[in-house]
Amino acid sequence: MATLNILYAGFGGQGILFSGRFLAYEGLLLGKQVSWLPSYGPEMRGGTANCSVILSDDPIGSPIVDKPDILVAMNLPSLDKYEDAVVSGGKIFVDSSLIERKVKRTDVDVYYVPATKIASEHDMPTLANMVITGKLLKEVSGLGIDNLDEVLGKIVSARRQNLVEYNKKAINVGYTFQ
């Protein structure tokens, strides 16, 4: 990992920004330079939401991810909008329970994860974002699930620490999804 440019995109309310913060803290614990930049404004209130996360061994210039190495698409408009921006050889993670079409690109690795369906089946319907993040942690070299407790402890607010276990479960389910 010299630099990982990650773009999370989906609907407002899917936990796009939270997943991004999770990855940023994961990067911080791995000793990386990190930046996290959300879309803000009307998107946060129900439209499309996205978030740029950069993990790097070097100081980070622009925090804006225009050409992602990794795209996580959690709805169709996001895949339509960003599919072509992914660098050749990059990775696309698709929530295949919400996006019916296949990725057209042939020069990227694609992971279809029915994250929303899996999350519902495990009785945690709001954590599809963490299911797909679990898959990402599995497939991206340099990342993993060793730091789950510490990262989740930091980003889940103090009065909601009971949700840490749910998030861990969601990540583990995604991590082991084949």
Partner: peptide, 10 residues
């Protein structure tokens, strides 16, 4: 500016 205000870094 809005970017500097909204972005997170260590």
């Amino acid at each position: 500016d809005g970017t500097m205000g909204q972005m997170m870094e260590p």
